[in-house]
Every structure is written in C-alpha cells, then in structure tokens.
Design a protein around this nucleic acid. Structure first.
Lengths: 207, 207
DNA sequence: CAAAGAACGGTACAAATGTATTGCCCGAAC
DNA sequence: GTTCGGGCAATACATTTGTACCGTTCTTTG
C-alpha cells in the first residue's frame, strides 16, 4: 500500500478534479484543456492551465508535457486507489481507535500486473483460509510451478476433471491439493496430471 | 495473451494491437499515431492509419475521430477497472472448468464511491465471517444508523473505548455488537453510546 | 487598508496530431 | 498472367492542442 500525498484544494480546483475523475472514468481517456474549459463554463484556457498547475503541484495529477490528452489522476489512480486507510480496527476487544489518515490503499500495483485474471469461488472447501463461497479471487498466472512454495493457494486444472482452488503441496513426483476444510480429503495426484494455472494474489468480497 | 472474440488479425495488425495494449497498460493513455509509427519501425503514418482502420472494422479498437490520443482497446479490456473473470472455480469437488471470459470484474463502481474509507483489521473476532487478521476492509460511511439491517457488519465507535468491527444488531434502545467468533461475548450497550461509523462494503486481502 | 494569490478573459503561436492523397511493392487469389 | 488487398514511403494540410503572455477582477490573508 502506497500513500498519496495530497494537499487540500480550493473549490475551483476541486470542481475541476471531480469533473476530470468523472470524465476519465466515463471516457477512459483524458479530455483536452479546451474541453475542460467548456465543461467548467469558461471562455479562456488560462484558468484551466492555472488549476492544472496547482493540481500538479499539490500532487493530484500529472501529465506528459507537450503531449495531448495525457493527463492522469494521481489522487485516485485509475479512478481506483486513493482510499484513505484510516487506521486499524479492533476485531477483538475494544482496543484501537483511529483518527487521521495514515496511508492510502493503492490497488493500482496489483491491478497493473499484466495477465492477472479472476475467478469466482464456488463451494466452501477453502473456508478455513477465509475464502468463502462467492468470493472473487485474483490470480496471477504461474509459469514455473517448480518454484511454488508449499502451501500456496493455487487454481489447478486436474486432468480430465476440472479446475479447483486448493493449497498446493509438492511431494517428490506427486502433488497434493489440500482443501482448507476438514470435510474435504486431500487430493493426491502425479505431478503431470496437475496443471497449475494461477497463484492467489488477493481476495475480493463485495457485500 | 490477447484473446479474440472478434475477427482474426494479420500479423502486422496483431503486432500493433499487442504493442498498443502494452503501451496503454503502462502509460495509461493512448499513444499518437506517430508514436505508433516509430514503435513499429515505420517512416510513414499511412501504414498505421491502415492498420488502425482494420482494427476498428474488426471490432478491436475504437476512438474519437479527430481527437488526439483517444484510442481505446475493445479486445480484452484488462486494465484499470477490468480484470477478466474467467469463470467459476470449484472450492469443493472438482466440478467447474473455465475457458472463455465471461465477464469483467469491475472494481470501479465500488472504488469510485465518494467517501469510502478503509480499515486494517486487527484481531480474530470476525474470522467466522471470513474476515481475518490483517485484512483490509472497505467501509462506506453511515449517515443514518436507523436504517441499518440487523446483522450488517459495521465499524462502531464505543464511547470511551475505541473502534471495533462487529455485526450490528438493534434491540429497541440497546445495541448489540456481536463478534463472529465464539470466543468473544456479544457487547450490549445503550444506543447513544455507540456511534456507527461505517458499513462493510468489501474485504480486500492481498497475499 | 494593503498585499498576495487565485480566477478569469482575450489573444497569439508553435508544435503535435489526425487525416487525405499518391505511388510503389509484394504476395495471395482467381 | 491479372487482379486485388495489405503494407510501405513520402508529402501535404487543416485542426487540435498545449502553452505563453497581458491585463482585470475577486477573495483571502496579514
């Protein structure tokens, strides 16, 4: 998690930033300065230039100088991150309180990983690892199954059967796929019958 | 790497498309035609125009005519907001297999919600709800605690104590904060001593 | 009140950029 | 062979676009 240093904005700057976030979120590309001008109801590009300079100095945006429509939001990169992590919350006794922003949750590094894919979890064999039915797991493709650490959670294609999400263990030439639920027995197979497709990177559960 | 739900491409077209996917994935904005030209080792924009036209006709890309750097990939929209959900994975028996992209995991709607904040979970009182120690929970501010459904997971500030993550139950004038772990007793308090700060929207666990 | 900064209008200009046109080469299809 | 489409080079051109400059007004700050 990286943080995003952001000084406060004036209302005009905030107005522009909000519109930019909306525009980029909708159109998937940056508007031109004159488009911003019109959207803000202005008749001159100068105010926009000024606001953009301030937004840049305050660490909210960046762009490639001289190049058209290359503006990027930093505040919430990709329209995604920039969720303030306000602190720790006790899920035990009543311990921790939170006050100010400590850092920003930045999903961008994960989401920028090329080739990432997601799977919807179906079943309850991983509940003891806190992966529940209906969760979405983000997987990173595995090129070299030799390097997998034992215990890693992987999605594996078992010859003739299907894909399953399990803890991966290697024992010589055999592979053990172990559930995180006592109700399920470990599956033991020759290594060549198991194709590891991905390695668990993150769990996403939307309520 | 790149899939084709569209018409097939020639090698030159595929080469351009792959480069575009890489460039946009890295830079977060479209290159200009002359940049493509250089990247392809060409000395004239015409071939790029031609390839782009074909890519558009075959349904791989689109752009705003006349506007600079507004190109968008249609092919596999993995990028910022989209991670391809390849299918369901069995976390029970060996059931489901996956093949093609069924939908795209779009975190944007959640993450664009204004005012969202995050908390780091500390402790194990919510493990039975699959919220583990170290998880990051995304919370939506609660304006009207009256409308909370019983059982909702909330972060609550208990007068004089601190913030805690619990299941929320209302019983007349008293509020019960219930853990998801038999080791913890429910906390029963007068409603005025509990300030609900946020409602659980999503759980994020990065491995 | 005075000073400073932010915001706005107007204008200008060079560079970046999309697009059109012409001609040539080459391989595949007929 | 001939035709046709894809690919390439070279050039030209109208917009789009970022940026700079000047002056004015307004709000905030000291």
């Amino acid at each position: 998690m990286t943080r995003a240093p952001q000084e406060p904005l004036t209302t005009a700057q905030q107005e522009l930033y909000d519109w930019l976030a909306d525009y980029i979120g909708t159109h998937r590309h940056s508007p031109s300065i004159r488009q911003m001008m019109q959207a803000m109801g202005l008749r001159s590009p100068a105010p926009i230039q000024s606001r953009l300079r301030h937004l840049q100095q305050k660490g909210w945006i960046t762009w490639q100088e001289g190049q058209a429509r290359t503006l990027q939001l930093l505040g919430d990169m990709v329209g995604v991150a920039g969720i303030p992590v306000l602190g720790a919350v006790a899920a035990g006794g009543l311990v921790t309180a939170f006050d100010d922003v400590q850092e920003h949750l930045d999903l961008a590094p994960v989401l920028e990983t090329r080739g990432l894919f997601a799977l919807t979890v179906n079943g309850d064999s991983m509940v003891d690892s806190h992966i529940a039915d209906g969760d979405v797991v983000l997987m990173e493709p595995v090129q070299d199954p030799q390097r997998l650490r034992n215990g890693t959670v992987v999605s594996a294609l078992v010859a003739g059967s299907g894909t399953t999400l399990k803890h991966f263990h290697r024992q010589g030439a055999t592979v053990v796929l172990e559930a995180a639920n006592p109700a399920y027995q470990p599956i033991e197979l020759p290594a060549e019958q198991v194709e590891v497709q991905g390695r668990l990177v993150a769990v996403w559960r939307q309520i």
